[in-house]
């Protein structure tokens, strides 16, 4: 278990390194409202724990494990802010302080549920982006492409569904998008419009948000039960 204090520092460094340059200890001190001396001390400790690499005069960068923690805490922070403001109606100032305390206690599961409930907000109340959550399932299939990336006229057999968002998955299952079924992309509408798909005997228009969850093996041919005959 990482201490709250360490999490706070990593969150702060994560934010300061977003521009791609190392974070300076003076900035960290300013942001954390502590003396530069104690920052230096903390940096040495974080370095020895393997969360950051700290070079004097150059600054601080996060290691992979430090980055995961920093980003997770920031993500929870911004999601919580959004939740407190939008759902509970708490004002912005207060929500920030409160999110600062709650972010360390929020479990991943609860985070996922809150995000799902609010249909995955993409920005916090101040407009800063909420980093995307890690995907639950990382099933890779060389021959499969995402439905939303397929081009007009392309066809294939559904290989699997992503499983990051149970509620949305249920809706696409209910519409008949399940593995082993054939589909053809008929039309892609402009202006962020939906994809028009023939699946079985049904024709369904579905938004990119849903089409992103369906993976199709385009190498496999389907046996056609001819209904809408070809010309």
């Amino acid at each position: 278990m990482v201490s709250e204090n360490i999490e706070e520092y990593l969150e702060c460094i994560w934010e300061l390194t977003q521009d791609g340059t190392p974070a300076r200890t003076t900035d960290i001190a300013k942001k954390m409202k502590v003396s530069p001396a104690s920052v230096t001390e903390m940096m040495q400790r974080l370095d020895s724990l393997g969360y950051i690499t700290y070079e004097k005069y150059k600054g601080v960068t996060l290691t992979d494990s430090g980055k995961v923690i920093g980003e997770t805490i920031k993500r929870k922070h911004r999601l919580l802010e959004r939740f407190l403001v939008d759902v509970l109606g708490i004002d912005k100032e207060k929500s920030h302080d409160e999110a600062c305390r709650l972010e360390h206690m929020l479990s991943d599961e609860s985070e996922r549920r809150i995000s799902e409930m609010m249909n995955h907000p993409k920005t916090c109340p101040d407009g800063d982006p909420i980093p995307a959550m890690d995907q639950l399932c990382a099933r890779k299939d060389e021959d499969s492409s995402v439905l939303s990336q397929m081009s007009e006229g392309e066809e294939g057999v559904i290989s699997h569904l992503s499983c990051d968002d149970p509620q949305k998955i249920r809706r696409i299952i209910a519409m008949g998008f399940v593995p082993e079924r054939c589909l053809t992309v008929e039309e892609k509408l402009p202006m962020g419009g939906p994809v028009l798909v023939q699946v079985g005997d049904c024709r369904v228009a579905l938004a990119k948000e849903y089409a992103d969850l369906v993976y199709v093996n385009t190498k496999r041919r389907c046996q056609k039960r001819q209904r809408h005959g070809a010309e």
């Binding site: 249909n119 907000p121 696409i172 939906p194 049904c202 024709r203 369904v204 228009a205 990119k208």
Partner: peptide
């Protein structure tokens, strides 16, 4: 209004 917008899915 709160929350992110949802998306279309409809049978034609």
């Amino acid at each position: 209004l709160r929350f992110e917008p949802t998306s279309l899915m409809i049978e034609i």
